[in-house]
Design a protein around this nucleic acid. Structure first.
Lengths: 233, 233
DNA sequence: GCAATAGTGTCTTTAAGACATTATCTT
DNA sequence: AAGATAATGTCTTAAAGACACTATTGC
């Protein structure tokens, strides 16, 4: 930072909260932890934790990912979303929390970490009516909107898929995250002709009751120009 | 946040840094402060300051804007960019800083705040070769890229203009921020036909050596669909 | 009149949407 | 053969780029 005056001993705590997203049976799903302690004991919450002194923000995020979600760092795309710091958001004091989203392909069921009553994947549909701890509903909403919008103009969708995938699977990512259906033919044309999006492996997947689909892997590009816009907004 | 264990007395400090951008004579310009104290005494830096206990992040940003830039809150568009927390970024200790960008129309010259040797607007071109304090070059870069990219798919450009403006002025914003020139006719068509972007005031500005330009004000829309894409990226 | 700025119109090209058609597998 | 899934092609429409042209001012 840059203020010129030394601050008093601050009682502000810094934390990270993680919105870990994956696709489970074609449903966009988020990893939640059931809290074992107060506050919000018994409520479902995003995995998170305080930053340790001298620790990188991303380092803390990976640590939480490993401790609370039993996920290694290689498997996910991690990206900062926004920082939440409204004083009353945590009853224990003034906690400023940096929200990250972590996207991964078919992530495994979490092992239950310590101080955690339970941990499981929730499809977004199942979360309707569930009240999350703290301001985590807002954090979740922000991360999901970020993910939805980044699918439009980046190649982020591939982070939801394994190394090798078909165009149908890629289209499935868009359909699941956006909650709509896309024309298969038009999507195929768009995906295969976007520079840097896909690399044709010139092999085919095992057929699933129809013509076998060609396999691709993620290309070197990160942005989609022109973007792949959601309809009707 | 959401960690279940109470943290030890944290020595992590939380700050905000501001990237205040405006157009000065058609040049995208940023407000910088010359530091009066160590560290980085004499270096130019972004205005910033520590969060006070119980203070909102945005509240702190507005406070800094008022204290160090003598800018009221009504005049600017304030938006979070990203949070920087690499431990070594501030030699005084572990400081996590939430970066904001503040965009305004033709902002006034700053009054020199306390603990500040000097304060002035820098056009981006003039900043070439100037070494900023802390990691502020990175923060500035992130904010500018955010602003550039948000011009594409939002109506953010109007925040660089006064309440009433002409299409030429609006095009000037795009040209200044993107550092390119745009076809006047095509831009006019795009701007006037984007739903919610502009409201026609059905009046004209005083002529400036040619046909007088029609006046507009910002419309209710916030997103541009389809976006107004920068060429060649 | 001429220069300058604003605004419109036209033609071409690109790319999306709708949807038909062909290809290749399983059963 | 029938059904399923993948891939390509065609036609239409939307919108961007290039650029000519008209409109309205000051000089």
């Amino acid at each position: 930072m840059s203020s010129s005056s030394e601050s008093r001993a601050s009682e502000i705590h810094v934390a990270v909260d993680l919105v870990v997203l994956t696709l489970r049976d074609g449903a966009l799903s988020v990893l939640l932890i059931q809290r074992e302690d107060e506050p919000h004991r018994g409520a479902w919450a995003l995995p998170g934790g305080f930053i340790e002194h001298g620790e990188e923000l991303e380092g803390a995020a990976y640590r939480v990912l490993s401790d609370e979600a039993s996920l290694g760092s290689g498997a996910v795309h991690l990206e900062q979303v926004r920082t939440f710091g409204t004083p009353g958001r945590d009853p224990r004091g003034h906690v400023v929390s940096v929200a990250f989203m972590a996207l991964g392909a078919d992530l495994p069921d979490p092992l239950r970490g310590e101080d955690v009553a339970d941990a499981r994947w929730w499809s977004l549909a199942d979360l309707d009516g569930i009240t999350l701890a703290f301001d985590h509903a807002t954090v979740l909403e922000a991360a999901i909107e970020r993910a939805r919008s980044k699918l439009e103009y980046t190649t982020l969708a591939v982070t939801f898929l394994p190394d090798e995938f078909t165009i149908s699977q890629l289209r499935g990512v868009y359909e699941s995250v956006w909650g709509c259906s896309l024309d298969a033919g038009n999507f195929h044309r768009k995906a295969t002709r976007s520079e840097g999006f896909l690399v044709d492996l010139e092999r085919h997947a095992a057929p699933t009751g129809g013509r076998p689909a060609r396999l691709y892997r993620a290309g070197p590009g990160t942005s989609l120009v022109p973007p792949l816009l959601r309809a009707g907004e």
